[in-house]
Design a protein around this nucleic acid. Structure first.
Lengths: 231, 231
DNA sequence: GTCTATAACGAGATAGAC
DNA sequence: GTCTATCTCGTTATAGAC
């Protein structure tokens, strides 16, 4: 973070990074459930007790890896969003979705860590929330911009969902019409359904041109939250 | 299977079932990655080598659990489908989606086994494919019936996706319009995105009335494959 | 033939004494 | 920080009971 750090502090961040790198490799080979401080220490030529100076417990190391993964994904999504020229919200939406997909395909094990099965015996602390929210906030921002430009389609909202929609909207996007909020949450979950199916192999032997399939599906997702082209 | 089985065969199926029951409990407690033949044997008062009469390897036990889970889910979905009175395809669609959701919420660990992160070092054999396909085939059948009744909405199909759409349609539903096939696969993946987000806790502290949220989202999924009410 | 139990292998994790 | 004794694991060979 800060550029001016003493040699001691720099050494500490370097060792911390090395620990996380090795842990990530173990994640890929054995899965998060078997992540073991001892094995990480062995691979680093350290003794396990030395690791506790950097991470107080295995769960804290896991938490750090989870936050890093969310942040890396969020960064990739934000970079893709920023790189889209023009103001077309559908283009921005699909660019973010594509970035999520590419990130997940490049790092399937980190994807599994944050969007796969929960790790038995581990419960993520609140610390992970801000990093986890980045992609969602980005998607909300796209819809908000489109709404500001007057280009949001109206969406259906059954009477039974109205209370929940208003609660959600108050939490997530008070400036958007209430019916947009559940549509956004649903689209967000559905995006990760599409990505997860590809990353976890459920599309094997079924979809071949995944690029085209995914692009079409996410374009229709954009429509499902009220976005229309070049508004 | 066959009702007329000797005492020997009955004993065998009973022991097989007991092994799987204990294994399922271990799945819930430790996760699939740590499923251990020895621990299962210990809990059954058997010796580990005896299990090899029933399952040639740990992976074969895992495979059996996976197939059972897919079949249990498929059965629940098919029962829900059969219980819907009338011919409204949207009602049938949402009933199947609801059944999938309820099944997953009641058995989160079995859900994780089939739709969560892959088990490290394990690769599912082709034997799992028929059981895994049941929910998908059910959804295809609903759309096919609606199409037969002349009640399918037209769907957009970008030029770039046409070859893939036709390949998919030839594989999955030759009697349906080509543009329906990718929409169906996408809706299928998105359904499990919605379910997975709820089961794995991603909706915690966000969506409260999950019943209403899910119903609305799956109703809109039905529309995304071309279904309309009471056709 | 069908099953269970004993014993063992090689590999890896783990706990504690030093 | 190191070493050792003791656990776990999947899997196999073998011998004996029904």
């Amino acid at each position: 973070m800060s550029t001016a750090q003493g040699a001691r502090a720099r050494a500490r961040t370097e060792v911390t990074a090395a620990i996380k790198d090795v842990a990530r490799r173990q994640l890929a080979e054995e899965g998060a459930a078997k992540l073991s401080l001892r094995a990480v220490a062995r691979e680093l030529g350290m003794v396990s007790s030395a690791l506790y100076r950097y991470f107080p417990s295995r769960d804290d190391l896991l938490t750090a890896l989870i936050i890093d993964a969310y942040d890396s994904l969020g960064e990739a999504a934000e970079a893709a969003h920023a790189a889209v020229p023009g103001a077309d919200p559908v283009r921005r939406w699909t660019a973010v979705c594509e970035a999520v997909r590419r990130w997940a395909l490049a790092r399937p094990h980190e994807y599994a860590l944050i969007y796969g099965s929960p790790v038995p015996g581990y419960s993520a602390p609140q610390t992970t929330v801000p990093a986890a929210a980045r992609v969602g906030l980005l998607l909300i921002g796209i819809v908000r911009d489109a709404h500001g430009a007057g280009g949001l389609t109206e969406l259906p909202l059954p009477a039974g969902l109205r209370p929940e929609a208003e609660r959600l909207a108050a939490d997530l996007a008070p400036d958007l019409p209430a019916e947009t909020a559940p549509a956004l949450v649903a689209a967000w979950a559905q995006l990760f359904g599409l990505v997860g199916f590809e990353v976890f192999g459920q599309l094997n032997r079924m979809v071949e041109d995944r690029e085209a399939f995914f692009r079409h599906a996410t374009t229709r997702l954009a429509a499902s939250v009220g976005l229309t082209a070049s508004s």
